[in-house]
Amino acid sequence: MPVSPIHPASQHYYGFARQQPMSYKSLQEALTLVKQAVAGEREDELFYEYLISVAPSQEEKEIIISIRNDERKHNQMFRKIYQDFTGQSIVVPANATFEKPVSYLDGIRKALFGELGAVERYRDIRAGLPTRYYRDMVFEILTDEQKHATKYNYILNLNVRSV
């Protein structure tokens, strides 16, 4: 079935073109979520540094360091997206603190569910972006977040087996 030149998402039904919206989320919704994603940057950094400092093995430290480094990359990507659409930079307070988890494993659990929650929020960001270029950037971030959740599951599994 050919796509109508009227709109890339047009569909034909019984010979009539029906206009489809480009997305079910707006750019403004996406940009609000991008700003929120960047806002917790310093708190996240402190949390990852804590997990790295208390990780019981070098393997776990290296896994968490790789996740932290990905998160830094994501932060820069989100900042670029926001800057490109608004012409403004996102400013975050430097004096952030974080709530220390009860234990290392409690922190890993919190991190795991944080990654899963991020996937849900980032899907909405992706849906609100108007071009493939920016949607592909967020797709990379989304797949990294899923990879991080798997890595945290691996760490939990290592620690459960050792108990």
Score class of each variant (00 low, 15 high):
L33K: 14
L33Y: 04
L33M: 13
L33T: 07
V34Y: 01
V34A: 07
V34E: 02
K35G: 02
K35Q: 15
Q36Y: 06
V38I: 13
V38P: 00
V38N: 06
V38C: 01
A39C: 00
G40N: 00
G40S: 09
E41Y: 12
R42F: 03
R42C: 05
R42L: 09
E43P: 03
E43S: 05
D44L: 11
D44R: 05
E45F: 10
E45R: 10
E45A: 12
E45L: 13
E45N: 13
L46V: 02
L46E: 06
L46Q: 09
F47D: 01
Y48F: 15
Y48E: 12
Y48P: 06
E49V: 07
Y50W: 15
L51E: 07
S53P: 01
S53Q: 10
S53V: 07
S53W: 04
V54R: 00
V54L: 01
P56D: 11
P56E: 12
S57W: 05
Q58H: 08
Q58G: 07
Q58L: 10
Q58A: 06
E59C: 08
E59P: 04
E60W: 00
E60G: 07
E60Q: 14
E60T: 09
E62T: 13
E62D: 15
I63T: 06
I63R: 01
I63Y: 04
I65Q: 15
S66E: 14
I67W: 01
I67Q: 05
N69H: 12
N69D: 15
N69I: 04
N69C: 10
N69W: 01
D70C: 06
D70A: 00
E71Q: 13
E71D: 13
R72T: 14
K73T: 15
K73V: 14
K73G: 12
H74D: 08
N75H: 11
N75C: 10
N75A: 00
N75M: 04
N75S: 13
Q76N: 14
Q76W: 02
M77E: 05
M77R: 02
F78A: 06
F78M: 07
R79T: 08
K80W: 05
K80T: 12
I81Y: 00
I81F: 01
I81A: 03
Y82R: 01
Y82T: 03
Q83A: 11
D84M: 02
D84E: 15
D84R: 13
D84G: 06
F85V: 03
T86N: 09
T86R: 11
G87A: 03
Q88W: 08
Q88N: 15
Q88R: 14
S89A: 12
S89Y: 12
I90F: 09
I90P: 04
I90A: 04
I90Q: 04
V91S: 14
V92L: 03
V92F: 03
V92Y: 07
V92N: 04
V92T: 06
